[in-house]
């Protein structure tokens, strides 16, 4: 393998040498950039432009020349509601259900995840033995694939699974976890927190370890209580890291699809259908394939993401400068 790669590299050297003589060293930079820019152009920038075209056209044809222009029609379909708080009164009720589900999902998932990540990071940062081991215990689910995470928990929560056995052992009635809309939603949030918490714990732990020790020593000299130390020292000094963690987790949470889709399939009914699943199902899984509607929905989502990403860049820059 290594030999093959080195052989390939030697072959590439021939045209590169020719280009170097032809263009000169400074323009050769563009040759090095070319593959990357080509990929970004084709698979990131071009799609962004096309997305707007799709959002303004209708019909189930994928080719642009076969599509009819509908102007803002798709947006109107998505946003025509008699009462925005009641998805049933909307023209596209599934979209609004997905919006509300995503809203609650993001709120609960980010809240619990950052909360537990902070708690875990604090625990890991205290004087304990085998810190490395405990750190990897909390971290390893991050590496599992979303489908595997979904199946692990589905197996535990199935009708005759471990969770129900535990309930019965304690003398309660068994529950059909994934057929009850509230439980299904709860477990979707739960597995998502379970799978991603370790990642944020790691970042917060790094933030905690960057706080200088002597500040704490000074605090203990002044006989500050642990709670006061936490509120007056740890929390303010950890704030920049916290902001990064919050924004990053918001960006990812809004785009959740994989684990929840593999876990519940959006059900029961549409109780756990999130926005990306709406886009996937309107655009690709359902018939007719409503590409325009899917595009319009993803543009609305993109607006949220752009705002969040700007926040992230701002936060991380402030972090570097501060």
């Amino acid at each position: 393998m290594a030999r093959m790669i080195s052989y390939c590299m030697r072959i590439i050297e021939i045209p590169m040498l020719y280009l170097q003589k032809r263009l000169g060293i400074s323009r050769l930079a563009w040759v090095f950039l070319l593959p990357n820019l080509l990929l970004f152009g084709l698979f990131a920038f071009l799609p962004v432009v096309l997305n707007f075209v799709y959002a303004m056209t209708g019909s189930d044809q994928i080719l642009l020349q076969d599509r009819t222009f509908v102007g803002m029609g798709n947006y109107q379909t998505l946003t025509s509601c008699e009462d925005f708080l009641n998805p049933n009164s909307c023209k596209d009720d599934l979209f609004w259900r997905a919006v509300y589900n995503t809203f609650w999902f993001v709120l609960l998932q980010v809240g619990f995840m950052v909360g537990f990540a902070l708690l875990t990071a604090l625990m890991l940062n205290s004087k304990i033995r085998a810190r490395g081991f405990f750190r990897s215990v909390f971290f390893f689910p991050v590496l599992l694939s979303p489908v595997v995470v979904a199946l692990i928990w589905k197996w535990i929560l199935q009708r005759e699974g471990l969770a129900n056995a535990a309930l019965e052992g304690m003398g309660f009635d068994t529950i059909n976890w994934l057929l009850d809309r509230h439980w299904a939603f709860f477990w979707s949030v739960f597995i998502s927190v379970w799978a991603h918490m370790g990642f944020y714990t790691l970042i917060l732990l790094a933030g905690l370890q960057a706080i200088p020790r002597d500040v704490y020593e000074a605090a203990s000299m002044d006989a500050a209580s642990p709670f006061r130390t936490f509120r007056r020292i740890t929390l303010p000094l950890l704030m920049p890291t916290m902001i990064v963690v919050l924004v990053l987790s918001l960006i990812k949470s809004v785009q959740t699809f994989d684990e929840v889709y593999a876990f519940t399939g959006g059900g029961p009914g549409s109780a756990t259908t999130l926005l990306i699943q709406y886009v996937y199902e309107t655009g690709f899984a359902g018939t007719p394939r409503l590409f325009g509607l899917a595009s319009a929905a993803s543009i609305l989502l993109a607006v949220v993401l752009v705002i969040l990403t700007c926040l992230q860049l701002w936060a991380s820059r402030r972090n570097v400068n501060g």
Binding site: A44, L50, Y54
Partner: peptide, 25 residues
């Protein structure tokens, strides 16, 4: 170029699924 590459951070695959599908097709 650097700014452009930072810009792609704002375009995750999830928001350009439909046109990406066209390009790949």
């Amino acid at each position: 170029v650097l700014a452009l590459i930072i810009g792609t951070l704002m375009i995750p695959q999830t928001v350009v699924l439909v046109p990406l599908f066209l390009v790949v097709r």
